[in-house]
Design a protein around this nucleic acid. Structure first.
Lengths: 182, 182
DNA sequence: ATTGATTTGTTGAATAATCAACGAATTCCA
DNA sequence: TGGAATTCGTTGATTATTCAACAAATCAAT
């Protein structure tokens, strides 16, 4: 892809960082564009050069993380669930402020659904109901079942202040998934 | 003073932060402009828009801190040495990376002298050899004596990892100065 | 409901930063 | 010492950001 001007990267990074920080402090609807601009140390107009409004900003922020998680899946497609899980959890840890904010009670309500949808998509190629231990089950049931489980664990992990190391949580959910889908 | 464009502030702040960080890692002479630009996340050319070379950058950085310390003195001109000292030490603490780097053995060799000169200037209005306990002493002797003492304490404080809280060190040097110059 | 204050989204002109490229100076090291 | 590689300092063209100002929309409180 064409190299992006350094100023664009810097502005967008600052704006995204600002909105995440602010969402950790107050409900999204209470945040003004001016506040985001102040926190990001950019002119208010600059935000409109990149996003149509704050909802677009949040959407793009979410989609970017979904994209990154998807890419990690692609790179880890030949790993076990346990190993692949660990790569995801490393990513979660690196962006803990984003994910814990998004999954917190006052976070972005639709984020959880968007996240669930992604997990379902990524699990789909791994699920086989034509044979093996899941023979005879509806694919959608299996997908919804285990994707919900994974999202629920991530939610629990963040809401409880990440009580287990990424390594451990990845290993345990990995074992559960390998046992059921592997 | 006229309001400065936000882009200028941001670039200069990033560049100054970068050079301080790098000076904490390696000798000043080993630092290249490209390294500073990379660390500051600005184009190399941007540095030349603000500084003629890295020595000019270092000079401006030093002079800015000297200016700030001078301003703090003006604002605290009616305080005791002890109170005024505390204000300086708060400033030192806030910019600990700069001062500890500058005063470290491999720091900027001329910074110590520049700093000493500032302290002498700021002490000059406080010294009275026409009467009181310092009657008969040469003004320059008194100035050099106590300014050196103050600089020496600051140097000691940083080289030993700031072993005392700012409040304490300010109180103790304040008592010593009040006793001799007050 | 009406007013007053704040926030929004947009505009155009001015300015700063970026980028790629250059020759010159400096450093490296064989 | 010679030659290669790096760094320097500058250039001109392009692009992004800033700034001040604006009307419209939204909000808050009476």
């Amino acid at each position: 892809m064409a190299k992006v001007d350094r100023r664009i990267i810097k502005s967008q990074e600052a704006i995204k960082k600002a909105v995440i920080e602010l969402m950790a402090e107050k409900p999204f609807d209470d945040i003004t564009i001016q506040e985001i601009a102040d926190r990001a140390n950019v002119n208010r107009g600059t935000i409109y050069l990149h996003y149509t409004d704050k909802y677009d900003l949040l959407d793009q922020l979410i989609e970017e993380h979904m994209d990154n998680l998807r890419k990690l899946c692609r790179e880890a497609s030949d790993l076990t669930f346990e190993e692949g899980n660990y790569i995801w959890y490393e990513y979660f840890e690196r962006h803990r402020l984003f994910f814990s904010t998004m999954l917190s009670s006052k976070g972005a309500p639709h984020f959880r659904n968007r996240f669930l949808q992604l997990v379902i998509e990524e699990f789909k190629p791994e699920v086989d109901v034509s044979g093996g231990k899941n023979q005879g089950l509806h694919e959608e049931v299996v997908l919804q079942f285990f994707a919900s489980a994974v999202v629920g664990i991530v939610e629990w992990w963040f809401k409880n202040g990440m009580p287990l190391p990424a390594r451990v949580i990845a290993e345990q959910t990995g074992r559960l998934l390998d046992r059921n889908l592997g």
